[in-house]
Nucleic acid binder design. Sequence first.
DNA 1: GGTTGAACTGAACAGCCGTTCAGTTCAACC
DNA 2: GGTTGAACTGAACGGCTGTTCAGTTCAACC
Lengths: 195, 195
Amino acid sequence: MARKTGSHSDITGPKVRAAAQKLFARYGYAAVSMRQIAGEVGVQAGALYNYTPDKQSLLFDMMKAHMEELLAAWEAEPKGEGPLTRLEAFARFHVRFHLDRPEAVFIAYMELRNLEPGNFEVIEALRKRYESELEAILRDGQEAGVFSLADSKLTTLAVIAMLTGVTTWYRDEGRLSRDRVVGIYWNMVRKAVGA
Amino acid sequence: MARKTGSHSDITGPKVRAAAQKLFARYGYAAVSMRQIAGEVGVQAGALYNYTPDKQSLLFDMMKAHMEELLAAWEAEPKGEGPLTRLEAFARFHVRFHLDRPEAVFIAYMELRNLEPGNFEVIEALRKRYESELEAILRDGQEAGVFSLADSKLTTLAVIAMLTGVTTWYRDEGRLSRDRVVGIYWNMVRKAVGA
DNA sequence: GGTTGAACTGAACAGCCGTTCAGTTCAACC
DNA sequence: GGTTGAACTGAACGGCTGTTCAGTTCAACC
């Protein structure tokens, strides 16, 4: 029988994940100990094992959730018609989504090598599925004569690298507003694909 | 009196740096132990301390050397006249330089957070000096009416992110030759800045 | 061929690692 | 108010960490 109050698992569980995300993003997975995470949450290290089977799962679950959220959010995004409109939707969506989750993004790009082989494959597959969304748009636009690309695969990776790079420097208190940054990135992408 | 043969320090020293670079790039600084590095070199862990005062210096010296090599190489690069020519020189140089040193580049971008504060500042300053080289070109081109930029600072970071991204996917055995890749990236940069 | 000293070994140091688990706490229920 | 069980503590496990250092090796020199 589930208790309503007095039960902390639905509070501590998210706290554990939040603490792990914060610390992994700041210091890196390998440099963060379970005791540090526990300290951030306010419990002893042993208590963490009520919420995760091990440290690796903490990383993997967080990365998997991030990638699935990314794919689901893009699927739910209104995309409009035609390659140019869809590319604009993608560019704006990508920058906004990444600006909203700087920690998760940082971890997703930095901690791939700390995943055990089986876990790595899962995340890698999700990442490729996302990349193929952009590549499909670029190929469609290329065939329709809307874009002018030397190589759609290379362009896909170059565009994603450029857009994702926003997280390395953007700060909310900064000189440029979010909307302005999103608009500038979209403009650069548009020009880069020759549209 | 320095011995000519029989002395291994001029062999082991570079070996240590090479092993550290290889392992840091593959598994990350925090995940690599001094015993692993020693094993790669073929000595015991204690012997490493003939070549570095500590593990942190191994990382810092390698990153500092990389950044200084980057700046020196760019300084030595023939740049030509005018913003467009200089931008082309920069783009081609950047991609080529980074393709030649995938491990050092990877470490320089991934291990910043594992630098002690004082060391971090040094590397950060070198990185900013390099970025300002590109920004100067972009501002000159903007003022000369050759480029069309929404924001020179943002464009600087976006261009560098795009160009550096090449190291995440390029493989020598791949579909596209180095020269072809360099040319495609330059073309995307050129279009992105509106030239 | 005896001496020197750079290079290296191998063991030890204190301390932290991820993980386990018997025992304690205490709100929620009967 | 006694019982239950989820949540958590605190100590322990073996093993690994970066670093130190007395002792060994051995090529190069006098």
